[in-house]
């Protein structure tokens, strides 16, 4: 019972990070049809932002804010420099563009900072544990879950209660409508990238807090999982992305916890196979995006 609770907390905190990343990917995809391979690099940039702020001896909360701000800036810059010239290109072209951008940024990190991990020391209370009788829960997991809940709640409010958020949801279903509403397309696209950057920044903070270091490839693995989460949820569906993130996280954590020793090295393969199996059953995802196509 105790381990089950512990595993559930772990699943929620890992799944939450995937959900944040997947939601950012889905927000951008639903509007510009871009599967952003460079999203992992946005996350990595946030990590380096925190590292740099801490080097300047800024207090931890400021460093964390700086990291998120750097991620927003990086996402906006990417959109302006690399993706805007490609606006309207087909999905494949956009995907390869972001792939190339991702490779370029990685090379820049390796040369400009270091190919090896740089350490990040966060306040001790973050890495402490809470004892609940027999169960021991990491403070970082609790903070992660709280942060994810706050971020997702803020996103929901933004999308449902503000005019720009409504415009974004409309754009996700039919971009032409936004123009008819008299809202500048560039603003909506930029907002989508800003949101995805902020979510990646928050995910980076949580990731870095658990890992204690940043390296040029830091974002690659979690974002890969987030890709799979967005597809599992239903590409272009915001709710689906969040759901997919939690499912991917849960499958991973529970396999890690309950697989027999001998099968552990294969857990990655098993969890991905389960997810791809789910996709065979539901090719449009667990929570498909709604869009009506006219012929």
């Amino acid at each position: 019972m105790g381990t089950l609770l512990q595993q559930t907390v772990n699943a929620l905190s890992l799944g939450g990070v995937y959900a944040l990343l997947a939601l950012g990917l889905a927000t951008v995809f639903s509007i510009v049809r871009l599967i952003n391979f460079a999203h992992g690099e946005v996350m990595t940039i946030a990590g380096y932002g925190i590292w740099w702020a801490l080097l300047l001896a800024l207090p931890a909360p400021v460093a964390i804010l700086a990291g998120v701000a750097v991620a927003v800036g990086a996402a906006l810059a990417m959109e302006r420099i690399a993706f805007r010239p490609m606006r309207g290109a087909d999905v494949t072209t956009l995907l390869i563009t972001s792939f190339a951008v991702s490779e370029i940024i990685k090379v820049l990190f390796q040369n400009g900072i270091s190919a090896r991990p740089v350490p990040i020391v966060l306040p001790a209370w973050l890495t402490s544990t809470i004892d609940l009788g027999a169960v021991r829960i990491g403070m970082i997991s609790v903070v992660s879950i709280a942060a994810v809940v706050l971020a997702l709640g803020a996103m929901a409010l933004l999308l449902r209660r503000t005019p720009l958020g409504l415009a974004m949801r409309a754009a996700a279903e039919d971009f032409a409508v936004v123009r008819l509403m008299g809202i500048k397309a560039n603003h909506v696209v930029a907002l989508a990238f800003a949101i995805s950057g902020a979510l990646a920044g928050i995910a980076a903070v949580l990731w870095v807090a658990q890992r204690g270091s940043v390296d040029p490839l830091m974002g690659a693995t979690p974002v890969l999982k987030a890709f799979i989460a967005t597809v599992l949820g239903g590409l272009g569906s915001l709710g689906g992305a969040v759901l997919g993130g939690f499912v991917v996280g849960a499958v991973e954590v529970f396999l890690q916890g309950f697989l027999p020793e001998a099968a552990l090295p294969y857990r990655e393969a098993i969890s991905l196979s389960i997810i791809i199996g789910l996709l065979v059953l539901r090719p449009d995802g667990l929570w498909p995006a709604a869009n009506v196509s006219r012929s």
Binding site: R33, V231, Y266, A269, I275, I276
Partner: peptide, 27 residues
């Protein structure tokens, strides 16, 4: 799965297959 998914989702599924094979071969 690759044939049933459409466009971009199928691309991601091919990535998934690459990771599966890589992790099985490494393990």
């Amino acid at each position: 799965p690759v044939a049933r998914l459409n466009g971009a989702s199928a691309s991601i599924a091919t990535l998934g297959i690459l990771i599966i094979v890589y992790s099985v071969l490494s393990a």
